[in-house]
Write a protein that binds this DNA or RNA. Structure first.
Lengths: 165, 165
DNA sequence: AATTTACGTCAGCCTTGTTGACATTCCAAG
DNA sequence: CTTGGAATGTCAACAAGGCTGACGTAAATT
């Protein structure tokens, strides 16, 4: 069943194959977050702090509303996280000079240090997985993930790709 | 930079490439859960209910502790979710006949109906992504995800692969 | 001057994770 | 048989981190 006129096999689109993909996403995501989670527990931080730190590191000087649209949470939720990071001296918030309503966010040295610790751990796992799977598999991995995103998120993702703050 | 003696490019292991992979996982996972989340909101259920329903459907008659090891949460946390599903008539819990301590879990017709609704939505997105990326990309996708799992989770994943309760 | 935008904050709610305490059941050793 | 330990499942209470709604302030825009 499921050979196309053109001869292209569509077996990879069976419900069974799709279910395997769904379960793979579930289990892999657990691995993906496991190492940072381990580091964060015991500090008083959680995954939400990690996400904020990652994207501030990624785009230094980014504004609060920028971060909101990337993280897809409410400002109240983000604010709670940001508050603790600022109070603990990991993040610096700077009033915008061109537009005084905006707050620009930066990691302090201490913040950068934690970011490095977290991303080192996460990259190590990613690197091992990439190395085990090989470059062709990695290309496919990225292709499928991109196709799985909401269009909005794909835009955010690609905007990040292009670069800076 | 980074050509190997053997000639195999290692450019796919740069920190930049790894970071892109990390961000892709983050954004893709959001898409991955978006459709079921939308369905569940308004019913009184959340992602935890979805996970329980998925794996009970997958392995009818599975025990609570079985489910615990797959989901990786505490039994107390799972129990609350299970409680509401049983009370609402989506899941049936049956005392084990060989070992009376165990409870075997099954979806009712109503439970199967919700399962179908949820997995249809999730599969539709997955199918679209798979189709857009093509079979070779899908193979790579699965390879990388498997390599990313904790060994324990990879075992759970593969045990599921083989089949039944 | 009036409105809109960006941000912060207070209050309260929900889901879903956690621990601790406890009941039930099975099994094995005394 | 009985007793104790291990496995299993339930109840209670708490914490993190989502959410909404309401409100305040400062800056920009009209």
């Amino acid at each position: 069943m499921a050979e196309r006129a053109g001869g292209e096999s569509l077996l990879f689109l069976t419900d069974e194959q799709l279910r395997k993909g769904i379960e793979a996403m579930f289990f892999a995501y657990r691995g993906f977050t496991a190492d940072p989670d381990r580091i964060l527990q015991g500090l008083d931080y959680g995954r939400a702090h990690h996400r904020a730190i990652h994207f501030i590191h990624r785009s230094p000087g980014t504004t609060v509303s920028n971060l909101l649209s990337i993280l897809g949470v409410t400002k109240q939720s983000l604010n709670r996280v940001l508050r603790t990071l600022i109070d603990d001296g990991l993040v610096r918030s700077e009033k915008g000079r061109v537009d005084g309503r905006e707050r620009h966010l930066y990691l302090t040295q201490k913040g950068e240090a934690l970011e490095r610790q977290l991303s080192d751990a996460q990259r190590a796992r990613m690197r091992a997985a990439y190395r085990a799977a090989g470059p062709a598999a990695v290309a496919g991995f990225r292709q499928v993930l991109e196709a799985m995103m909401d269009p909005e998120m794909r835009n955010a993702y690609n905007r990040l790709r292009e670069g800076g703050a």
